Simulated scan of single mutants.
Amino acid sequence: MSPTLSPSPFGTAKTLVLKVGSAVLTNADGDLDKGMLRTIADWTSERMAAGCNVILVTSGAVAAGRSALGVRDRNLTISQKQALAAVGQSRLMQIYAELFATHGFHVGQMLLTAGDMEDRRRYVNARYTLEELLRRRCIPIINENDTVTVDELKFGDNDGLAARVAVKMQADALVLLSDVDGVFSANPKTTPDARLIEVIEKVTPALIEQLCPTSQTGSLVGSGGMLSKLRAARLATSAGTHVAIANGKRPGILSNLVAGKFVGTYFPPAPTHRSQRTQWILHGRVSGTRQVVVDDGARDALLHRHKSLLPAGILRVVGTFKAGDLVDIVDSAGRLLGRGIVNYSSAEMDLIRGHRSADIAKILGAKPYDEAIHRDNLALFEEVTSAR
């Protein structure tokens, strides 16, 4: 058992995000487990009736499509999985709609992509939609748009999506249900004496690498694993959200979470947390490789003097991007310092890098900004600032 949480943040939460993975929603044959779906619907309805806003982030579309079409082969191409998701998503929502209707609740489907989290306007608009659904006492049901998102199907990022939703909605709590009891000191499937870590006070990149070597794989049913869950916990806790990772197959786990006595791993929120905008900048998805590499002088100005990034401090530009895109800021040693929204495209940045701001108009024909990235549109990672 994890330490008793009294009062339980999962019981007192005004807004709670519940993420349910494919491994929880399917049976041994890989088909949807209707009994488990009913359990999720019953508990969610109970919490909604008690006044808590519950947002459900669900996997299962591919599994539903697999069942509908009688597909048993697990070695599928991305396009085959996308076809199964296209068939299965409507079936999954139909089941949820019927189950929640027995409790008097309507459901609202939202299919999101990483791009929806990266684009600021779409990011904000998604929040308005969620708020309106909850105001009308509808159950928002969110899934990755698996029919169009290739790398989400390959790597499984519903955990990250759930964390981003939690941050966006300023949720008090996030529950990540999987087919394991929580975070272990080693892989329990290969290490018999692996122990459950009941509380993780702070998730750092070093801890993630220690617990989840990059070669570690996840469930055979889903496409995620503990790595994505730890990253999700890091994001959510940094925004002030309580997080739990627990085994959705364990009887009574959701009720136990509400009571504050559960088997799992608990992550308390960071004592100080950053604004939603800063969270979005730091943890928004950067498509492909988009980097500006800075010299030591610029690195010092960013870390110690809280300055904007000027063209003079840029050594080189990596990747292709346009003005307004989110990019990584990397020092000359390759260390990721933070992220920011650029004022110039990669082509323009490549022309003005190493030059004074006063020279921008001469080089580009116009100078809309002095800064490559303004301080207000730039955020540094905590482990970088704490080590400076």
Results as ranks from 00 to 15, higher is better:
Ser2Phe: 00
Ser2Lys: 03
Ser2Leu: 11
Leu5Ile: 12
Leu5Asn: 08
Lys14Thr: 15
Thr15Trp: 00
Val17Lys: 03
Lys19Val: 07
Lys19Arg: 12
Val20Pro: 04
Gly21Val: 02
Val24Thr: 08
Thr26Met: 04
Asn27Asp: 15
Ala28Gln: 15
Gly30Arg: 08
Ala41Ser: 14
Trp43Asp: 07
Met48Ala: 02
Gly51Gln: 14
Gly51Cys: 05
Cys52Leu: 02
Asn53Cys: 05
Asn53Phe: 01
Ser59Asn: 14
Val62His: 06
Ala64Asn: 09
Ala64Phe: 06
Leu69Met: 14
Gly70Arg: 14
Asn75Gly: 12
Gln82Gly: 08
Leu92Lys: 07
Ile95Ala: 11
Ala97Phe: 02
Leu99His: 10
Leu99Val: 09
Ala101Ile: 05
His103Asp: 05
Gly104Leu: 10
Val107Arg: 01
Gly108Leu: 09
Gln109Phe: 01
Leu111Thr: 07
Gly115Gln: 06
Glu118Thr: 14
Tyr123Thr: 07
Tyr123Arg: 07
Leu130Met: 15
Leu130Asp: 02
Leu133Met: 14
Arg137Gly: 11
Glu144Ile: 07
Val148Ile: 15
Val150Gly: 00
Val150Ser: 11
Asn158His: 08
Asp159Leu: 01
Ala163Tyr: 01
Val167Glu: 08
Met169Trp: 03
Asp179Leu: 13
Ser185Ala: 06
Lys189Arg: 15
Ala194Arg: 10
Ala194Leu: 09
Arg195Phe: 13
Ile197Phe: 04
Ile197Lys: 04
Gln216Ser: 13
Gln216Thr: 07
Ser219Thr: 13
Ser223Asp: 08
Gly225Cys: 05
Met226Ala: 12
Lys229Gln: 12
Ala232Val: 09
Ala233Arg: 11
Arg234Ala: 12
Val243Lys: 03
Ile245Arg: 06
Lys249Phe: 10
Asn256Val: 03
Phe267Arg: 12
Thr272Met: 00
Thr272Trp: 00
Gln279Asn: 13
Val286Met: 11
Val294Gln: 06
Leu303Pro: 01
Ala312Glu: 00
Leu315His: 04
Leu315Pro: 01
Val317His: 00
Gly324Cys: 10
Gly324Thr: 05
Gly334Tyr: 13
Leu337His: 08
Arg339Glu: 08
Gly340Ile: 01
Asn343Trp: 03
Asn343Glu: 10
Ser345Gln: 00
Ser346Arg: 09
Glu348Ser: 12
Leu351Cys: 11
Ile352Leu: 07
Asp359Asn: 14
Lys362Arg: 15
Ile363Ala: 09
Pro368Cys: 04
Tyr369Gln: 03
Glu371Gly: 07
Ile373Gln: 00
Ile373Thr: 00
Arg375Asn: 08
Asn377Leu: 03
Val384Pro: 01
Arg388Pro: 04
